[in-house]
């Protein structure tokens, strides 16, 4: 493995990627191997695990294993969409603010500070109470929560890169700002942004799960890991699997993404060390 996939060579990279691939595969393809319909009761409620129902049944008697196989797609898709949208907004704001060196910078960054002042979950609840529960509201809300933090990181990295000789050389050639940003700045701020993106994605998952858990996101009877936890939490003493299995999936995904992010950052970070600094380390 060379180049882009170098991070896989590290232990945490290999483990992280394995976990992520596993969880995502379950979320996407799980429904095709699910033994039962996730929304139809198959036996008595809260049945313990058995050879028929591997993880038992939930409080309505639906098969937990089948619901687990169905329940990942929504949370992962929503989190990915929300994080992606957050990056689109946050990176644009951060790059413009960091690169412009004009009045735009303080204006943008103070707006960002105002956004950061809202408690995220509260912001989302207010938004939902105003705009109603819906997938679009959830995605946009989470993206808006994510964007300010992203823009700060991007701006800091951009400020640092903008004074480098290769950026100035491009400016001195009279290249358009867009070309300078895309060609010279963007590739060199990807290391901090990528590390951070793992954490952000996890955070999106947690927020969406929280909102679903509170009953303000996806509505029953949709099968969703967070909703499963929420629905079955009262019966945890009787049928713990109905809560623990979806919780474990969310936890696994979070850990896997973080391990991968760290490994990518480390593999990118290495090529940032100038040769002199490297020979000074020997």
């Amino acid at each position: 493995m060379t180049g882009r996939l170098r991070f896989m060579r590290s232990f945490s990279g290999a483990v992280g990627v394995t976990i992520v691939v596993f969880v995502v595969a379950v979320a996407i393809f799980g429904r095709y191997v699910a033994p039962y319909d996730p929304n139809v009761p198959v036996t008595v409620p809260l049945a313990p695990p058995s050879s028929h129902y591997w993880l038992g049944t939930d409080f309505l008697g639906r098969d937990v294993f089948s619901r687990l196989l169905y329940g990942g797609r929504s949370v992962i898709t929503l989190a990915a969409l929300a994080t992606g949208l957050g990056y689109l907004i946050g990176m644009s704001v951060g790059l413009i603010a960091g690169f412009s060196r004009s009045r735009i910078d303080p204006v943008l960054m103070r707006s960002v500070d105002v956004m950061l002042a809202f408690p995220p979950l509260l912001f989302l609840l207010v938004l939902i109470s105003g705009a109603g529960t819906g997938v679009e509201v959830l995605v946009i809300g989470v993206a808006v929560i994510q964007a300010p933090g992203i823009s700060r990181i991007v701006r800091t990295a951009t400020l640092e890169v903008s004074v480098r000789g290769y950026v100035e050389a491009a400016i001195a050639r009279g290249e358009r700002s867009y070309a300078v940003i895309v060609r010279e700045v963007l590739p060199n701020i990807m290391a901090p942004v990528l590390v951070d993106s793992g954490l952000r994605f996890t955070y999106s998952i947690l927020i969406i799960a929280s909102v679903n858990f509170l009953g303000l996101g996806l509505q029953p009877p949709a099968s969703d890991w967070a909703l499963m936890i929420s629905d079955n939490r009262q019966y945890i003493a009787i049928q713990a699997w109905a809560v623990l299995a979806p919780a474990a999936m969310i936890a696994l995904l979070t850990i896997g993404i973080n391990l991968t992010g760290d490994a990518i950052a480390r593999s990118l970070g290495r090529s940032y060390v100038p040769k002199t600094a490297r020979s000074a380390v020997i």
Partner: peptide, 20 residues
Amino acid sequence: ARRRIQIVFQNPFESLNPRH
């Protein structure tokens, strides 16, 4: 004018884009 005036910077470790 942009073509005819060129500059070479002080720090060779920062004047080339490490990603190109």
